[in-house]
Amino acid sequence: MRKTMFFLVLFAMACSLWAADPIIGTWKLNIAKSTFPSNAPPPPKEQIEAYRYLDTGEIELTYRLTDKDGSSVLEVFTWPAQGGAAKMIKGNIPKNISWIQTLIAPGEWYVTAMEDGKQLGTRHKTISKDGMIYRQSWKRTDSRGKPYEILLVFDRQ
């Protein structure tokens, strides 16, 4: 009995140590709950973000976006699970664009997008306490240099 209890406690401890970041999972953009200012790109028809752990100790993001005209984008990125420099595995983004995924706390990330090492914008990603809602606050400037902020709200699938 004692041995069983010991193994159960050990198992529970190991599970807690290996608890996945709450961002892991598949998220679908809820356009009705998101906000798009007039000087920002228009809302897409559909956007899905899928985050998963890789055996390499990285997180992989598969990003699928379908616009209202039917065109679509598929991009895949990876970065160290503890935070760090992101790599584009699939997609057509220029090579002078880079991203840093900074882990603030489990379920909270800052993404810094840079062009030639200069910050273009940030994305603040947070997961709700119940783990069902993912909010992404996106700060950038438009072509005239006017700042704007998009709030994307995703539902867990």
Binding site: P80, Q82, G83, G84, A85, I100, T102, L103, I104, Y110
Partner: peptide, 10 residues
């Protein structure tokens, strides 16, 4: 925020 990295890892 300052992100310190070693070999690209925070």
């Amino acid at each position: 925020y300052v992100t310190y990295m070693r070999d690209g890892k925070q």
